[in-house]
Design a protein around this nucleic acid. Structure first.
Lengths: 146, 146
DNA sequence: CTATAAGATGCATGTTAAATGCATCTTTAA
DNA sequence: TTAAAGATGCATTTAACATGCATCTTATAG
């Protein structure tokens, strides 16, 4: 039971931007601080841009900024947008994957469980992840001076 | 966001046994009816046996039976036992995977969401998945005569 | 007592999605 | 016009998962 790094990197990127609100941040900076692949992060950022979560400026002195206030960005929304497939089990997506499908209650149960998972994420915004004291600690960990 | 086939096969196997309570069922039969790999299923069955969910008899006329009543078998318990890793994100397992870990609230949120997921599964037993009418339909789909 | 049918087990291989790397293009400002 | 930034497409690697194969063990029928 694992989610992809897309969602993880996406949320961490948005957190980084939120921690540095007011400045423009480059992909290189984020990749370095987190110690992750620049290439992969580029794609995640790109997708976040297309989805409208952040603003990206090309060229010299370019970089990224949050497109909305942290309190307006739902963790659940980001997750749904970034996770490639939301199907917990194969049979939910692919008709014919299991003979039981037409009457299977297990599918329904998995869907219910997933809904409960998403409901928790939906109940929180970026801002909830970054209360003042936590924000200070995270800036220290990321060596962000303000 | 996907779970492994271990859990899926395990639950489907237990459902099959529950639908055929009173008879002994072979791995071959289950694999054929579901159209899945006999080898893989063998390993799943083996694990279910070790965990005490089913009884296995070797040799001629051998086979499998449920070890307890369907109402006693929790879907959540089977899931926890069969899923190889319960960590939703890498950073929950592996210390040092992310610099934020010491103060990260995202981890906590993912743990909460996972708990909500598991709570749904915990609230149901095999018996809930197989009420009488559903049982009849599933037996038809599996070509189980009684 | 032996043939056969069942589960058990370990090792090897295949498969697939995810992650990463590389090269190149586009945009923008100094 | 050059350098710094994001954008994009293709190739490659990786790792988890799934599957296959061979062999062993156990038990029962005859």
């Amino acid at each position: 039971m694992r989610i992809t790094r897309h969602s993880d990197y996406a949320l961490r990127t948005l957190m980084y931007l939120a921690l540095k609100q007011g400045s423009v941040v480059t992909i290189n900076e984020i990749a370095e601080r987190y110690g992750i692949s620049r290439n992969h992060l580029t794609k995640v950022v790109n997708r976040l841009h297309q989805l409208g979560y952040l603003r990206a400026t090309r060229g010299k002195n370019g970089g990224l900024t949050l497109a909305s206030a942290p309190g307006q960005i739902s963790v659940g929304a980001v997750f749904r947008d970034m996770e490639s497939s939301l199907a917990v089990v194969e049979c939910v997506d692919e008709p014919g994957a299991c003979v039981l499908s037409p009457s299977c209650r297990l599918q329904g149960l998995f869907n219910q469980a997933q809904a409960a998972f998403l409901a928790q994420l939906d109940a929180h915004t970026l801002a909830d992840l970054l209360p003042p004291e936590t924000g200070r600690q995270l800036r220290d960990l990321l060596a962000i001076e303000r």
